[in-house]
Write a protein that binds this DNA or RNA. Structure first.
Lengths: 183, 183
DNA sequence: CCTTAAAGTGACATGAGTGTCACTTTTGAA
DNA sequence: TTCAAAAGTGACACTCATGTCACTTTAAGG
């Protein structure tokens, strides 16, 4: 009954992601997106009323996928295994941290994004509590700081091009045991 | 001989800083800046040809001040004292990290900003090396990771509103000895 | 008092993104 | 074959930031 679409929702979101990462929120335009999808600008308005609505939708799509991955942490037994899983996840989805920062710029939606962020942290409280119960994590550290450190570590710029495996194991070393030599 | 200026360079840079932090690079406009200074847009063009030139100038001004503070690290004797000085500096100038990120968006100047960033790191190599020589810092950790880790820590969002002193001492604990209990 | 240089103003042309809409194209079902 | 629903197009009116420029205002020196 209807004509075939020139682009799928997945393609649209993929293009949105690339443009958001390369241009930022303010410089992201429907023109750019239309060009990238080789479609007219008007066509996009058939699906989304404006850039804000599009990006909000895209974010929920992206975050759903991410949370799904995050929830798989429960498939791992014991804190140590969960910790390793989480750290690897961070590195394979390192774009997400950048996207979250960009997403906080969407007007009127700072609240929504803050909530999403908080939810994510909330969800991982169990993981941190497990670590504390198992006597692995220091009890006096705020849970949110522990999570913040794990999330932020993927954002440290590797300007000196240290080989990835060395970089990752060094980060793990610092997170777990710090940069100071014990005495 | 000349008419009195309605705003000083310091006022202009202060307003620029506030607008950059609140609106980001792409949404920063001469109109906004002119309004903020209660001056006509045209007046700004007497001093800077465009937004890029203005922001570049502002950045060099800001970074000069910051580097000056950074260099005062040498006034402290021994690694431990320097480490404490650096950490306090990070927290009192926490806007700088955000500004650096925003600055990386200025077109054609990513190179310049990357250089500036690298220079800053370069300048602190001595500090890290001192820590390693004094047997305080783990020798096998890449210097840039140690610095990056210290810089990033001020960017961790304190959504749960942990009291500042607790927050800071917890961060120091993690940086120095990690989040794991030793066994 | 008058001149002059710098500061500041406001209007103009330009270019780009926005949102809309009448119109065309495609497609499958009747 | 026809036709209706959904996809897609491109032009239009609108808004807003940009950069320029002729003009006005100010203030100090001659």
């Amino acid at each position: 009954m209807a004509r075939e679409r020139k682009f799928s929702t997945d393609e649209l979101f993929q293009a949105t992601k690339e443009l958001l990462l390369s241009h930022g929120y303010e410089a992201f335009t429907f023109s750019l997106l239309a060009d990238s999808l080789q479609v007219s600008r008007g066509a996009l308005y058939k699906y989304y009323e404006n850039k804000e609505e599009l990006i909000t939708n895209y974010y929920f799509y992206e975050m759903d996928q991410y949370l799904l991955k995050l929830k798989q942490i429960d498939l791992h037994q014991g804190f140590e295994a969960q910790f390793n899983y989480l750290l690897n996840l961070m590195f394979s989805y390192s774009d997400i941290q950048k996207l979250i920062k960009i997403g906080q710029r969407v007007p009127d939606h700072e609240e929504k994004f803050k909530t999403l962020h908080t939810d994510m942290y909330q969800y991982l409280q169990d993981f941190v509590e497990l670590g504390k119960k198992e006597g692995k994590l220091k009890r006096d550290l705020p849970n949110n700081l522990i999570l913040g450190y794990i999330f932020q570590s993927v954002a440290i710029p590797n300007h000196a091009d240290i080989p990835h495996p060395v970089w990752v194991s060094s980060i793990k070393e610092i997170i777990c045991h710090g940069m100071f030599i014990n005495n």
